[in-house]
């Protein structure tokens, strides 16, 4: 769908919301998600996303209990 109107699905990450449950990691079809080394303000090691690999499919959005991911359409 997105291809037709020349838009692209781009992931927005809210790592401060992450509680480190890791549900997203095996869910990602591109293995683009990993745990970062830093500790966020909630005290968890948040996920990080390799944006080059990410295809913006939204699987992470769907499984995440903590609203860490959003997918936006951009031109």
């Amino acid at each position: 769908m997105s291809k037709k109107d020349n838009t692209k699905s781009v992931l927005t990450l809210h790592p401060e919301r992450c509680k480190g449950c890791r549900y997203c990691i095996p869910t990602c079809p591109k293995d683009a998600i990993s745990i970062s080394d830093r500790i966020n303000q909630k005290g968890y090691k948040p996920v990080a996303v390799d944006m080059e690999t990410c295809i913006g499919c939204g699987s992470c959005y769907t499984i995440c209990p903590d609203y860490v991911f959003e997918i936006k359409e951009v031109q």
Partner: peptide, 22 residues
Amino acid sequence: VERLIPTALVEDNKFCPGCGHG
């Protein structure tokens, strides 16, 4: 494909890590 946080979620939830409620 756009997946935005719905408007009713006005603050971060307070559930434990991995809780299905979120």
